[in-house]
Write a protein that binds this DNA or RNA. Structure first.
Length: 424
RNA sequence: GUGGGUGUAGCUCAGCUGGUUAGAGUACCAGAUUGUGGCUCUGGGGGUCGUGGGUUCAAAUCCCAUCACCCACCCCA
């Protein structure tokens, strides 16, 4: 073999791809039901967009971007996430000049140079939704409700929605001060990582999984304790709207999102059984993002859902529906003359919307039957010298194992009746 | 970037105290059944034993390096 696929990428083969199509069709339906319209964005953007939009101090920008120079010397980056690009498109196309809010969804590949593991890939796929132009707390609740509704429609009813508020630029300094004061006496007990975080981003200590840090973090002040009156009010309203909608959630004061642009609401949906990477989706409000991209001060909120992880969770719970992948009809022939006639009949079947196939390998009738069973054809048409002589074909129901003769000119009509009766 | 595990047939794996021609199951192809799938039986094709180097009379087996995959840390979808 000349080469293999790059690390952290996957070939989604027939048999697997049907699962994706199923999840995608449910997603499109949910988004439509909630009034979101699709937007298709570039797979790569100017590097600058992510540095400004995602934040210089994030892991994504510091070490995970696929960045290269194109032939014109521009620095280009394969998108590591979708929100920054959506904000760019909103701005660039002046969507703020139309009716607000603007509700968008997209899906597609994202790229992060991470070490792959269960549920984590270098090219992975997300659904994303973004709402620009509203700071109403009901919109926060709507986005979370949409996400949970989507999981529910897939049968994922046991996922936990964790919600928190990370405050706004007004309350952030207070949080930082409170945390540093709290951790100062026990600074030496923190893990090396958190000692670093103490100065750079003390919020992250709350999220640490190392035992001692987690123990200390339990009684630490949180963002919620330090919210300014506006933020507190917003957060209380978001929770009330969630209760009004009957969306269960857990208040998780240690939930911290890594991307710089988040303000106010932050949330994450967990599936504890799909490996260490248990987040199947997450999002939050980003009221500073559009402005950070050089536009007017326009609020926004969004969510990103990991398709691979959703499928993992569904597989673990046996939620993938059986999807018929075989043809409606396999046309088996015996003899040269019937093979030529069959080739014409095949074209007629297809033109009539009957998914059908025949053998081109010159196999024996027996082998053709075996193949038809293997590819799970619903029916097999057998066309040999005998049938040719009588102007008919033999029609075999593969599941039942029963067989009858049908006049050649009636085959399509009979098949369409049979297929409509059982499938549609 | 760090740590652990695993690399032998398309797939799942055995063989690994070094020793004839590297095996099984399954899948694939064919035959038993000269026009009929699922069951059974028989046969066949298919392997640079991840790659490179070393030790040895002899390496799938021992040593080193390297690559890939898996899992975990970090972080996140």
């Amino acid at each position: 073999m000349l080469t293999t696929r790059p690390r952290g990428t996957a070939d989604i083969l027939p048999g697997q791809v049907e699962k994706w199509q199923y999840v995608e069709s449910v997603a499109a339906r949910v988004f439509r039901d909630y009034g979101y319209r699709e937007i298709r964005l570039p797979i790569f953007e100017h590097t600058e967009l992510f540095i400004r939009g995602v934040g210089e101090d994030t892991d994504i920008v510091e070490k995970e971007m696929y960045t290269f120079k194109d032939r014109g010397g521009r620095s280009i980056t394969l998108r590591p996430e979708g929100t920054a690009a959506a904000a760019r498109a909103y701005l660039e196309n002046k969507l703020y000049a139309g009716p607000q809010p603007v509700k968008l969804y997209y899906s597609g590949p994202m790229f992060r140079y991470d070490r792959p593991q269960a549920g984590r890939y270098r090219q992975f796929h997300q659904f994303g939704v973004e709402v620009f132009g509203s700071h109403h707390p009901a919109v926060d609740a709507e986005v979370m409700a949409l996400v949970m509704d989507f999981y529910g429609r897939l049968g994922l009813n046991d996922l936990e929605l964790h919600v928190n508020s990370v405050g706004c630029p007004n309350c952030r300094p207070g949080v930082r001060r409170a945390l540093q004061e709290y951790f100062r006496p026990s600074l030496e007990e923190l893990c090396p990582n958190c000692k670093n975080r103490y100065e750079r981003n003390p919020l992250r200590i709350l999220d640490c999984k190392s035992e001692r840090c987690a123990e200390l973090a339990k009684t630490a002040p949180t963002t919620v304790d330090c919210l300014c009156p506006d933020c507190e009010q917003h957060f209380l309203q978001v929770q009330q709207y969630l209760r009004d909608l009957g969306v269960p959630f857990v208040l998780n004061k240690s939930l911290v999102r890594g991307l710089d642009y988040y303000t106010h609401t932050a949330f994450e949906i967990m599936a504890p059984d799909i490996g260490a990477q248990s987040s199947v989706g997450g999002g939050g409000r980003y009221n500073g993002l559009v402005e950070a991209c050089g536009g007017p001060s326009i609020p926004g909120i969004g969510a990103a859902l990991g398709i691979e992880r959703i499928i993992l969770a569904m597989e673990n719970r046996g939620l993938i529906p059986a999807i018929k992948a075989g043809p409606d009809v396999f046309l088996a022939t015996a003899g040269d003359e019937p093979a030529r006639e069959g080739f014409k009949l095949l074209a007629e079947l297809r033109a009539a919307g009957v998914a059908s196939d025949m053998d081109y390998q010159g196999r024996s009738l027996k082998a053709q039957m075996k193949y038809a069973a293997k590819v799970e054809a619903l029916y097999t048409i057998i066309l040999g010298e005998e049938e040719m002589g009588r102007g008919c074909v033999s029609l075999r129901d593969m599941a039942a194992g029963s067989q009858r003769e049908v006049a050649r000119q009636d085959v399509i009509k009979v098949l369409k009746e049979l297929l409509n009766g059982c499938c549609d």
